[in-house]
Design a protein around this nucleic acid. Structure first.
Length: 408
DNA sequence: TCTGGGGTCCTAGGACCC
DNA sequence: TCTGGGGTCCTAGGACCC
């Protein structure tokens, strides 16, 4: 089976909460949660009381009366994440960041410089502790999947190495919920067949698992149970979608439209900053019973402008509500844009570009682009709240703009 | 215990084409 | 005569991850 154990999975412990404790020593050793309405992260002292993301703030206080709740500072977390990833880069060029607080590292090529993988893992942990003041756990194994499980077992603030040849002995006693991709629903389904550990899952014939979970998923799970995972560590390309959502009462149309505009604006701004545009717009609503409904539209050309995105979203959301959720409470709305393409020309409107845009798009498309550019620029100088787009909300969507900015 | 916001991937079924 | 099989694209929904 496979080669040597050269894949690291590094995972910062209780990341947001650890940053808060680091920056405010008075919090050290105390039960701390980050968030407000909902707990986003909690220190291990708080977890002992059952405070885990994502429970509500009120419930968290009930479980742990001494809990200290601090608001999230996302800028600080992004900054800390970048610095930690830069430390990883010092040990290997093959770093695959999979979220703000975790990454895979392939260190097979770094052994001649820094010693065996276990030594590299130890040095990384020391540097992150010394330079960033943050605890980090690392798993070392022959595959990504196993390294990820190993880092979970290592938590908090630990290191677990699974040498080549030891994979099954390590995996078999662990609960199936540790397998990446098996959540509460999958765990429950497997329990009905009497399968609770990875070893029990591994003992099942592939045909049974495929029968339960479908072709693709079943095969994935079967392979993961036997550590059959050949995925390489690769630097990530850009994301496949850009989205935003907002929980809260959106039953009233006016309020809903205001929320949708804010979401479209946030998404549009992010897309323009990343220089991408997308062809599919998906909206999502949540009803008062927590059920979710979605609707999508594929456009003939990609968009990244706030105005058309807003108008398409309103249309999809309102028609979905009219057809499927009239007289129901709406508790969340969300927009997402996918099927992204590079769009390097989006950010600025230059004089020369006017012609190109007018011939390939419509006149209103160009105006939307100019408006976006102006708003983006003003925000850069004066900050977000300085500029709002009140005019878009007056009247019905149809009255606002003469042309649909989607493809022609 | 009724819970945020950002994502990914998969399934099933329908429309449509040859 | 309503009938094959294969492929692609799209829509809606679900589960999962951090």
């Amino acid at each position: 089976m496979g080669g040597a154990a050269t894949i690291l999975h590094a995972d910062l412990d209780a990341f947001y909460a650890s940053v808060e404790v680091r920056d405010n020593p008075a919090l050290r050793g105390k039960p701390v949660a980050v968030g407000g309405g909902v707990v986003l992260a909690a220190t291990y002292e708080a977890r002992r009381f059952g405070v885990t993301a994502p429970i509500g703030g009120a419930e968290a206080r009930r479980r742990c009366p001494n809990l200290i709740i601090v608001p999230a500072r996302f800028d600080a977390y992004v900054e800390a994440s970048r610095a930690v990833m830069a430390i990883f880069d010092d040990f290997t060029p093959r770093v695959e960041a999979i979220s703000i607080d975790e990454a895979f590292l392939e260190v097979g090529g770094s052994v001649h410089l820094f010693g065996p993988p276990e030594a590299i893992a130890r040095r990384i942990r020391e540097r992150v502790r010394a330079e960033m003041g943050l605890p980090i756990s690392i798993g070392v194994a022959t595959t990504k999947h196993l390294a990820k499980i190993a880092s979970r077992v290592a938590k908090p603030d630990g290191l677990v190495v699974v040498p080549a040849g030891e994979e099954e002995r390590f995996l078999d006693p662990l609960p199936v919920g540790m397998v990446w991709g098996i959540g509460p629903v999958g765990e429950e389904r497997l329990a009905r067949y009497g399968i609770r550990t990875i070893g029990e899952l591994r003992a099942m014939p592939q045909s049974s698992i495929v029968g339960w979970f479908g072709d693709v998923w079943g095969t994935h799970l079967w392979e993961r149970a036997r550590n059959d995972d050949s995925r390489a560590v690769e630097r990530r390309g850009r994301a496949g979608s850009v989205g935003a959502q907002s929980a809260g009462d959106a039953t009233d149309p006016e309020r809903r439209h205001t929320t949708l505009l804010a979401l479209a604006d946030r998404i549009g701004g992010r897309m323009r900053r990343k220089q991408v545009a997308g062809r599919r717009v998906t909206i999502r609503i949540r009803l008062d019973d927590m059920s979710l409904l979605s609707r999508a539209r594929v456009l003939s050309g990609p968009i990244a402008e706030t105005t058309p995105l807003f108008r398409i979203a309103v249309e999809l959301v309102d028609s979905l509500i009219a057809e499927r959720a009239a007289n129901r409470g709406i508790t969340l709305v969300g927009i997402s844009v996918s099927m992204l393409e590079e769009a390097p020309h989006l950010q600025m409107v230059l004089p020369l570009e006017d012609e190109a845009v007018t011939t390939s798009g419509s006149r209103s498309h160009l105006r939307a682009r100019e408006l976006d550019a102006a708003v983006d620029k003003a925000r850069e100088r004066f900050g977000r709240p300085a500029v709002s787009r009140g005019a878009l909300l007056r009247g019905t969507p149809e009255e606002r703009s003469p042309t649909e900015a989607m493809g022609e």
